[in-house]
Structures are given as C-alpha cells and as structure tokens.
Simulated assay, not measured.
Amino acid sequence: MNTPVFRFAPSPNGELHLGHAYSALLNARMVETSGGRFLLRIEDIDVTRCTPEFEAGIFRDLAWLGIEWEQPVRRQSDHFEAYESLLQRLIREELVYPAFMSRGEIRAAIAESEQQGGVWPRDPDGVPLYPAADKRLPHAERQRRIAAGEPFAWRLDTEAALSRLPAPLSWTELDDESLTTSHEVEACPQQWGDVVIARKDIPTSYHLSVVADDALQDISHVVRGRDLYQATAIQCLLQRLLGLPAPAYFHHRLILDPDGRKLSKSERDTGLATLRENGRTAVEIRRMVGL
C-alpha cells in the first residue's frame, strides 16, 4: 500500500484564522494516524494580493501550532510555465475560449435577459453564470481581438469538455477521517458554467493549478473545508481532460463565527496571530476548534 500524502495549501493573502487552524490540524492528525506525509503548498498565483509577509506568517502560525511539514515548500508562483503548458494543451484541443466580456457587459447582458422575464442561472455560490457569447465568435475575430490587446480570460467550454468524456464524472468522498470508508459523489461541473481557467496576464487559475500540483506532488488525500465541496466537480473534469490522477477527498466541517457565518481573513479577532498576541496557547486553539 502506498504511503498516504496530504497537503495544506493556504494562500498568503491574509492572516490564517481558526478555520485554517482546524484544517491544518486535522490534516496533521490524519497524517499521524495513517503514517502518511504532510506537505505545505503556498498557493500564491494572485501575485498582487499575496505577500512575503503573509507567507512568513503562515510558517510562523503553523510552527506555533506544532505542525511539521516536508521541505521544500512548493510555491505556485514559481511554476507558471508548468501551468501554461497545460493551458496550451486545452487551447489546442479547443476546450477553452477567450472571453472578452467586461463585468459591466456581463451585468448588462444578465439584466436584459431578466427584464425579458428570464431567470438567469447561478452557480452553487450564487454567482451568475458567464453569458458565454464569446463562444460564437469566429476564430479570426478572436485572434484579431487578442492581437489588439483587448483584455480577456480563458474560460473552459464546459459543454464541449463534457461531450469528450465517455462516462459520467464522480469523485471519491471519504466518510470520515479514518480513511476506511468512502462513497462516490456525482460531479456536475455544468452547475458552474464556463469557469475561468487562466487570465491574459496569469496563465492559470485556482482550478488549473490545484489539479496540476496535486498530481505532481502525488497527493492521495485532499482534506479541506466543506465550502469547496461543489467546486470539486470542476477539478474532477480537469483531471479527466488532462489525464491526471484523482485523489480522494474529505470535506470537513467549517469553523463559523458567532453569527453562523464562515470565517474571513478580514475578521482579525479570529486570526491566529491576534489570538497568540492576546495570550492564547496552541493547546487552547485545538480546544477552540474541537480537536
């Protein structure tokens, strides 16, 4: 039996909070009970919001919690070329298209449809789906607009992608942290419409880089928050299209604020650095998150 490989993959665009602590500690506990490996990955493709200071804070907070990880740490910003090679493959296979509509144009198209009595579809997060009018643009027109320097994003043609698959999509969801039982979940990427796969200036996106890294690092178990449960469908689709191995998933409960809302990096009172400065100990943090 292969050694289980887990990963904790935060973005250094703010301070870690109690929700991150729970996820990291749960990963570490599952590593310990399974005899697995713990990898830390820095997901910093958003080079405008991610900073070295926040990255240093991640290392400091995890060490304070008593978590150990293997070296070297993978930083996604060091590997744009690898992601771009996957993007070029999707372009060659005509599974993505350049999307030129601005946010204002998207809002206008949706408003026009709704004024005519239509109900615009929304993704599982409640965000309106992209109108996808760009899919009808002739190839020459696409190339002309790109050459003219118009801003655009590469979007996955989800309908075309699903038509290439011989069998329904699903992922393996673990029933609990014991890793002993699981069930298959039907993946419905069409719920998300044509998601962004890369941007003009950044040749990747969260979905593309995460499936690439999970495969490259031989991740066998992805343990993360329930808020990413539905997004797994898009990652399953990309894994199948690109011939990448699929890990098993365990989407754990979320740590919520007193009003029942998901914690945010902007709420500093739940930030690990703030809690540490206020005299909280790592033992107390474990107790606060139910571990």
Results as ranks from 00 to 15, higher is better:
L16W: 00
H17F: 01
H17P: 06
H17Y: 02
G19L: 07
G19I: 06
G19M: 06
G19Y: 01
G19E: 02
H20I: 09
H20S: 11
H20M: 07
A21Q: 02
A21V: 10
A21D: 03
Y22C: 11
Y22S: 10
Y22V: 05
S23I: 12
S23G: 11
S23V: 14
A24K: 04
A24Y: 00
A24T: 13
L25P: 07
L25D: 01
L25G: 05
L26Y: 12
L26V: 12
L26C: 10
N27V: 15
N27L: 04
N27D: 03
N27R: 00
R29D: 15
R29I: 08
R29Q: 14
M30P: 10
M30V: 07
M30H: 01
M30Q: 12
M30L: 11
V31F: 00
E32F: 09
E32P: 09
T33C: 12
S34H: 00
S34T: 13
G35V: 13
G35N: 09
G35C: 10
R37W: 04
F38T: 08
F38H: 13
F38N: 11
L39Q: 13
L40S: 03
L40A: 02
L40P: 09
R41C: 05
I42R: 00
I42K: 02
I42Q: 03
E43K: 07
E43W: 00
D44G: 08
D44A: 10
D44R: 12
I45G: 02
I45T: 15
I45R: 03
I45W: 01
D46E: 08
D46N: 14
V47H: 12
V47P: 02
V47F: 03
V47D: 07
T48F: 04
T48G: 06
T48W: 01
R49P: 08
R49F: 05
T51L: 08
T51W: 04
T51M: 12
T51K: 07
P52G: 13
P52S: 10
P52F: 09
F54A: 13
F54V: 05
E55H: 09
E55K: 07
A56R: 15
G57L: 11
G57H: 01
I58L: 06
I58D: 00
F59I: 12
R60D: 13
R60C: 12
R60Y: 02
D61G: 05
D61T: 07
D61C: 09
L62V: 06
L62F: 05
A63L: 12
A63H: 12
A63N: 06
W64M: 03
W64K: 06
G66Y: 01
G66I: 13
G66Q: 08
G66C: 11
I67T: 03
I67F: 02
I67Y: 02
E68Q: 15
E68L: 14
W69S: 04
W69K: 03
W69R: 02
E70W: 00
Q71A: 15
Q71P: 06
Q71W: 04
P72A: 06
P72F: 03
V73M: 01
R75E: 00
R75M: 03
R75W: 06
R75I: 11
R75Y: 02
R75L: 08
R75V: 04
Q76L: 06
Q76H: 10
S77D: 01
S77C: 08
D78Y: 08
D78K: 12
D78M: 09
D78F: 13
D78C: 14
H79G: 11
